[in-house]
Amino acid sequence: MDVSQTSEHNAQDSLDVSMDTFSNMVQILNALGNDDSLAIFMYTANGIKSSKQAIFDLGLTQKRFYSRLKDLIDVGFIEKDSGTYRHTSLGTIFYKMGLSLMSILENKERITLLDQLKQTMSLSSSDLDTIKSMVSQGSSDISGVLDLVFFSSKKEKIEMLPTYDKLVEKLVTEMSGTKRTILLASRYVDNRVIDSLLKVANKGIEFKVIMAKHDLEDKM
């Protein structure tokens, strides 16, 4: 029995998709699964009128270029129209998805920090929106991913505080008693909170802060 076929069937069964859909996804991932293919695919966004120029710009040999180009044509991402290689409708969709993915990867460190932040037990709805705004930086793609992955369930864990002073008091109390890493995301700078952070830092406790640069500069 072919082990690879067995693994493919097991994965397909667990995803509850048709075998054709699963096979198409495998073909697409294979077609995009190397630097040459991905470079050609992204380059084709503006159309390729001259293969010679594309080969030069991408730094590929003719053999590598046409071999990878054929793979992209076979999966339905690229077509030749009136002498110009262009994205198909399917290719355009995946191209835009690729741009969104690259935007997310550029913010990988911030999103990794959110893995830790989402474990925090008490975050107000306003805090969640502030975190999302600072990390996404206006990108609707990143904002949508954050909503889906981090905030859909987190909004069920909200502690409401009646005043700003109560919020600061709560923060200072929590920080003074903690023995673990402090993760703070806010658009405000309060001297009482800063003093508490300095005190816990002197105890050797690590802290990380997410804050919009312009908000910090306004307070300095």
Rank of each mutant, 00 (worst) to 15 (best):
R64C: 03
G98A: 15
K118I: 13
L113F: 04
T163V: 02
L113R: 09
S153E: 15
L123T: 00
S133R: 02
A45I: 10
L69C: 01
L146P: 00
S124T: 06
T92M: 14
V135Y: 06
M134K: 14
Y66P: 00
K108L: 10
T44A: 11
I78V: 15
G47T: 05
Q53D: 09
V172R: 04
F94C: 10
E109D: 11
N107I: 07
K80H: 03
K155A: 05
L167E: 13
L161W: 01
S89M: 11
S140T: 12
R64W: 05
G83T: 06
F77M: 08
L128Y: 01
K118S: 04
D57T: 09
M121Q: 12
D71V: 04
K70D: 08
Y43Q: 07
F65Y: 05
M121Y: 02
K63C: 03
L101F: 15
G83K: 03
K80Q: 08
I104K: 14
S67A: 06
M102V: 13
Q119M: 08
F151L: 07
L148C: 09
K166M: 11
D141G: 03
I111E: 01
I78G: 06
Y95K: 12
S122G: 01
R68H: 05
K118Y: 07
L123S: 01
V145W: 11
M97S: 15
Q53N: 14
D165Q: 14
D165Y: 07
V75K: 03
E159Y: 12
S100F: 14
M121W: 02
I78M: 09
S152T: 14
E159F: 15
N46M: 12
Q116G: 14
L171W: 07
L113P: 00
I104L: 15
Y66A: 04
I55T: 05
T163C: 01
T130A: 10
D129N: 09
S152G: 02
E174S: 10
D129C: 12
M97V: 10
D127H: 01
L161N: 01
Q116E: 12
T173D: 12
H87W: 08
K80I: 13
T163K: 04
